[in-house]
Computed example of a mutant assay.
Amino acid sequence: MIWKRAVTLEALNSMGEGNMVSLLDIRFERISEDALEASMPVDSRTHQPFGLLHGGASVVLAETLGSVAGYLCTDGEQQVVGVEVNANHLRSVRSGRVRGVCRALHTGKRHQVWQIDIFDEQNKLCCSSRLTTAII
């Protein structure tokens, strides 16, 4: 198990109250030994003007997952901040919910690298993102 902090899905979901996470209805749904998963709706909150999932919304989901996963891999008073994020948008989505799966590529003492893959309801890869975080 890579997580250093004990946490429940309920606690993770309460962290999003009153910020962008709740505004976009991002919900943490699964914690496994080496992955964190969350979902987000594809609706008027996350559409771009042409009715497709906005790439920026996908990046919000990716950075949310990577930052929270990064925090779970720290202890004590340590905090995690994103320093670089990129995303390759591979398939459009018009409706439903997308699911992000976050896994560690590197969890060092000063920085971390996270791979976040986002899938549609047919389990087709829609976006592949990478987030680098710094531990402060």
Results as ranks from 00 to 15, higher is better:
Tyr71Leu: 12
Glu121Ser: 13
Ala69Met: 00
Thr132Arg: 12
Arg103Glu: 08
Gly56Leu: 02
Val113Trp: 05
Gly66Asp: 01
Leu52Ala: 03
Cys73Arg: 10
Arg91Gly: 08
His106Cys: 06
Gly51Cys: 10
Leu12Cys: 09
Leu125Thr: 12
Val93Glu: 06
Leu23Cys: 03
Arg130Gln: 15
His47Glu: 03
Leu65Gln: 08
Leu12Lys: 07
Ala62Glu: 02
Val81Ala: 10
Ser14Ile: 04
Glu63Trp: 02
Gln115Val: 02
Ile116Asn: 11
Ile2Phe: 08
Gly18Asp: 01
Asn19Arg: 14
Ser22Met: 01
Ala57Asn: 01
Gly56Val: 00
Glu84Tyr: 15
Val42Phe: 13
Ser67Trp: 04
Phe28Lys: 09
Ser14Trp: 03
Cys102Asn: 10
Asn88Arg: 13
Asp43Gly: 04
Ala62Val: 05
Cys127Phe: 12
Ala62Met: 01
Phe50Asn: 11
Val59Trp: 00
Ala62Trp: 06
Gly66Lys: 00
Lys4Met: 11
His54Ser: 07
Ser32Lys: 04
Gly16Asp: 00
Arg110Ile: 07
Val60Thr: 06
Val60Met: 09
Glu33His: 10
Ser92Ala: 14
Val98Arg: 03
Gln79Val: 05
Ile135Pro: 13
Leu90Pro: 10
Arg30Ser: 11
Trp114Leu: 06
Gln122Lys: 15
Gly82Ala: 14
Met20Tyr: 04
Val85Glu: 00
Gly55Gln: 06
His89Lys: 07
Glu77Tyr: 04
Leu90Val: 10
Ser92Asp: 01
Gly66Arg: 03
Thr64Pro: 01
Val101Gln: 06
Glu84Pro: 11
Arg45Trp: 04
Pro49Phe: 05
Val85Asn: 09
Ala134Pro: 02
Gln79Met: 13
Ala57Phe: 02
Gly100Met: 11
Ala104Ser: 15
Val101Asp: 02
Phe28Ala: 09
Arg110Lys: 14
Asp120Tyr: 07
Met40Asp: 00
His47Val: 01
Arg30His: 13
Ile118Val: 09
Gln122Cys: 09
Cys126Arg: 14
Tyr71Phe: 15
Ser95Gln: 11
Asp43Trp: 14
Ile136Trp: 13
Glu121His: 01
Gly66Phe: 01
